[in-house]
């Protein structure tokens, strides 16, 4: 368990990997409850507050997006090691989602199409970008649970603000993640 924080608030962390940030937008869609959120939780590493490195262990980590490159994998593992409970959020984290559409094609074909044969590519001069600073693409897009152990899933593209809110507040109430079916039924 994470060490008790001074304020004794549960620590939450969030991250966006190969996602569109839509899941994060949905989290912010809790509207004015954001004020309550700050009262109830302590936010550690997250794109929302721009904390880059964990400064303490988190109780709950929310992951948006799957893994499309080696950096995603490293970050996801870093998250896994620093969160007690890791939640796979949204269709991309859970199944690969839209980015995984490329999984049907060999990676090389995608790269050629995007960089070499693109209408805007300068003939004969275009290259597939590469630099040590740039992440390397994986052979396919992986859902998070194929890379690390995932404890819970929040389905949806994105899951609604209510789902985020109910999930996080159930944690506080110690109710676990039993969400009403109506909130996560999509058909």
């Amino acid at each position: 368990m994470a060490e008790q924080t001074a304020s004794n608030k549960p620590v939450v962390a969030t991250i966006s990997l190969a996602g569109c940030f839509g899941c994060h937008m949905s989290l912010l869609d809790i509207d004015d409850r954001i004020v309550q959120f700050i009262d109830l939780f302590e936010l550690n590493k997250s794109p929302v507050n721009d904390i880059k490195k964990f400064t303490k262990r988190a109780h709950v980590g929310l992951v948006e997006g799957g893994c499309c490159n080696d950096e995603n994998v490293k970050v996801l593992r870093y998250f896994r090691e620093n969160c007690d409970v890791l939640v796979s959020v949204g269709a991309c984290a859970g199944n690969g989602g839209l980015p995984a559409l490329r999984n049907k094609m060999p990676l090389q074909e995608c790269l050629v199409e995007a960089y070499l044969d693109a209408p805007t590519a300068e003939l004969g001069k275009a290259i597939i970008p590469y630099d040590e600073e740039l992440p390397k693409l994986l052979d396919r897009v992986y859902p998070c649970h194929e890379v690390v152990k995932i404890d819970y899933y929040m389905p949806g593209c994105p899951p609604s603000a209510e789902v985020f809110w109910d999930t996080l507040t159930s944690v506080i109430k110690g109710q676990g993640f039993d969400l009403p079916v109506e909130l996560i039924k999509y058909d």
Binding site: D70, L107, Q108, L111, K136, L138, D139, Y142
Partner: peptide
């Protein structure tokens, strides 16, 4: 999983 990328 990055071998394909290096090959490309």
């Amino acid at each position: 999983s990055v071998e394909d990328f290096d090959r490309a």
